[in-house]
Design a protein around this nucleic acid. Sequence first.
DNA 1: AAACGTGTTGGACATGGTGTCCAGTATCTT
DNA 2: AAGATACTGGACACCATGTCCAACACGTTT
Lengths: 174, 174
Amino acid sequence: MPRLDRRAQRSREALQRAFLALIVSEGYDAVSVRQICAKAGVSRATFYAHFKDKADLKRKGMLGMKHQLAAAVEASDGGQQPFAFSRALFEHAAAHHGQHRALAGTRGGGIAQEALQAVISDLVKADLARRGRASPSAVAYYTGALLGVLTWWLERGAKPSAQEADRLFRVLAT
Amino acid sequence: MPRLDRRAQRSREALQRAFLALIVSEGYDAVSVRQICAKAGVSRATFYAHFKDKADLKRKGMLGMKHQLAAAVEASDGGQQPFAFSRALFEHAAAHHGQHRALAGTRGGGIAQEALQAVISDLVKADLARRGRASPSAVAYYTGALLGVLTWWLERGAKPSAQEADRLFRVLAT
DNA sequence: AAACGTGTTGGACATGGTGTCCAGTATCTT
DNA sequence: AAGATACTGGACACCATGTCCAACACGTTT
C-alpha cells in the first residue's frame, strides 16, 4: 500500500517540478513561494502542508537527488580502475540534465554544490583510500576537479557525451 | 583629493564590515538590510543611497576582492614554474581570512564561488596557454581543483600555512 | 455504494522586509 | 563662514511569509 495519498503525491511532485523550472528561468533567490504554487497549480496552504519553507523544498529535492545518485553509482561497477564511479556520475547527470543544471548551475546559485560536493567527496575518499592515497588535501583536490569538470560540462549543455566528458576527467586525474 | 566624502566612505565601510560579520554569523540568506544597517550604525536610507539592494552590496564587495586578488597576484612573480600564481592566492586568502571565509565558505552560500572561480579560471587559462596545454576541460579541471583545495583549507581555519597549502596543491597538480 | 478520513482550497490575519521619499540636521569641503 | 553634500528618522505603499480555519473534494476502506 502506498505510503502517500495520490493527491499528496501529485501536489508534491507538481511543486518540485515547478520549483526546478522556476530556478532555471528566474534564479533561486528570485523565486517566491507564491510563484511556485501558481506554477504548480496548487494552493499556498498546501505548500506549507508539505514543506516548511522554500529552503525545505530545496533540501528535500536535493536529498532525492543524492539518493538517486548514490544508487546509480552503486549499481554500476566500473571495475578496479581509479575513479571508477565517475562514469556513472556523468551519465546520471546527462539523464537528469535539467535537474542538475537547475541545482548545480549558476542560475541555482550553486544550491546543490554543497550536496553534490558531499556525495562526490565521499566517493573520492573511498576510492583514494582503496588505493592507499587518501589525504584530506587530495580528497579536496580531486573532488574540486571533478566538480569543476562536471559543472563546466553541464553549463555548456552536456555537449560532448557523458563518456567523453568522463574520459577527459580521467585523463587529467591520472 | 579623495573621490569620496569622508562620511560616505565611513558609511560604506561600516556597511561592508557589518555585512561580512552577519554573513558569518547568520548566513547570507538570513541577513536583512535592516540588520546590516543596525549593526553598521547607519540609517536605512543611507544604505539605499549607496547600494541598490543586498545583492548590489554583495556584488561591490566581491568586485573589491577581485581587484585585490588580481593585484596581489600581479605583484608577485613566482618565476616560471607551473601555477606560479597559486602561492600569492593562498597568501592573500590567509591575510584576508575572515573576508574569504564569509564569501567563499558554506555560510556565505558559496556567494563568492562565482567571482573566485572567474578570477582563478582566467589565471589557470593563461598559465596553461603559456605551456601550450590549454583546453577548456583542463581549465575547468585545474580551476575546480584549486578552488577545492582553497575552500577546504579555509574551512579548516587556514590551518597549515599558506605555503604548505600551496605546496599540497602543486604536488597534486604536477 | 456509502461512510469515513484526509488532502486541498481560498481567504483572512499579523508580522516584517523592501524600496522610496522628504524635510531637517550634521558634517565635510572650499 | 558659506555652500555643498551626506546622514537621519520617520512615513508610505507594496509584497511575501507563515499560520489558521471552515468548507469542500477526493481517495480509501468497509
